[in-house]
Structure formats: structure tokens, C-alpha cells
């Protein structure tokens, strides 16, 4: 099994954290993983993305030319990456910030208002965690035990309410298809 995932959005939306989270979860499950960020000129408000591969076997290229799944947290990212997904692949869209429709008709498309959900939870910054929850829910690439274990490690030393809101964000993301 190999999963190639691209996370993308504005700088400041926690895109790199999403990618690192995926790689940590892979490590927790004793899998091979590579995490390749964009680096250098990224600033808050600009676009940012990272590429994560998770596999049971040795990973050759950390660079992803054709992804199994792409998570787009804003509209420019959708334009940039909608053509970089394999046929029948997964496109997860942050409906709160993406109004346009994708040009692809050969994908599994999941639209969720991640930013609105995060705002309702009381911390707009955890929209990325909601999106991760949705990805985990659909891909079943990791167990909930591993996901929470990583959440614990990544948020170690921070205030308990930050852990709580992120835990809720994961759960909200998992039940992405419930009526709202």
C-alpha cells in the first residue's frame, strides 16, 4: 500500500503542519514515509504546499508527480493541483474558501466547509485538523489510536484546551458527511 498526498493552501493555514502530521502518523504505524515541503519564499497569505508519501515499502521519489489524494484549503491551490491527481483519485476541497468547481470529472470529490467548522469549534486555526480528520476517515490509512497518539505528541506542552479543540476537529472531520 502506498499513499501519495499533496496538502495545499495559504501560508498560515498550517499546511506544513498537516504534512508533518501525516508523516508522524505513518511513523507511529511503523510505515515508511517522506515529507517534502515547499521552502523559502513562502509567507502568510501566499500559497504553500507539501508532499507526503506513506508506504509499506521503501519510498523512492519524495516528489509527487501524480497524487492519490490532494487536499486544497484555498482556491489557487485547486487550480494548481487539480490536474496532478491520478484518475479515480481523491480531491478534498475546503468549501468555505473554494467557490469554483473543479474541471475534473474523473475524481472522487469531497467538499467540506473546513474553515467554517473550525470557526464553530471556536478556533479557526484548526481547519487543517478538520481536513486531516476527513482525509483519515476516507483513506483509512491510519488507526484512530495512532492519530490521537500523534496529536498528543505534537501538542505536548501546549494548553489542554488546544488539545481538546483539535480532538474535536479530528472528530468533526471524521464525520464530514453528517448533515449540517
Amino acid at each position: 500500500m502506498t499513499g501519495k498526498i499533496i496538502c495545499s493552501g495559504f501560508g498560515g493555514q498550517g499546511i506544513m503542519v498537516m504534512g508533518k502530521f501525516l508523516s508522524y502518523v505513518a511513523l507511529e504505524g511503523d510505515k515508511f514515509t517522506t515529507y517534502l515541503p515547499t521552502y523559502g519564499a513562502e509567507v502568510r497569505g501566499g500559497t504553500a504546499h507539501c508532499m507526503v508519501t506513506i508506504s509499506d515499502n521503501e519510498i523512492y521519489s519524495p516528489y509527487i508527480a501524480e497524487a492519490d489524494a490532494v487536499i486544497v484549503m484555498n482556491e489557487p491551490s485547486m487550480r494548481k493541483f487539480e490536474n496532478r491527481i491520478k484518475k479515480e483519485g481523491l480531491l478534498i476541497i475546503n468549501k468555505s474558501l473554494v467557490n469554483a468547481k473543479t474541471k475534473r470529472d474523473d475524481l472522487k470529490i469531497v467538499e467540506v466547509p473546513f474553515t467554517d467548522i473550525a470557526a464553530k469549534l471556536g478556533n479557526i486555526k484548526c481547519a487543517n485538523t478538520v481536513a486531516l480528520g476527513t482525509y483519515f476517515s476516507i483513506s483509512s490509512i491510519a488507526s484512530k489510536k495512532d492519530i490521537y497518539s500523534v496529536l498528543n505528541k505534537m501538542l505536548a506542552g501546549l494548553r489542554p484546551e488546544i488539545f481538546e479543540v483539535n480532538q474535536k476537529a479530528i472528530e468533526e472531520g471524521f464525520s464530514y458527511d453528517k448533515p449540517r
Binding site: L27, Y35, P37, I59, P62
Partner: peptide
């Protein structure tokens, strides 16, 4: 190269 420097692996 920059890719090796920036990429994370276990």
C-alpha cells in the same frame, strides 16, 4: 541538494 536538506524521513 535542497530536496534532501528539506525532506523529512524517519
Amino acid at each position: 541538494d535542497g530536496m534532501l536538506g528539506q525532506m523529512m524521513e524517519p
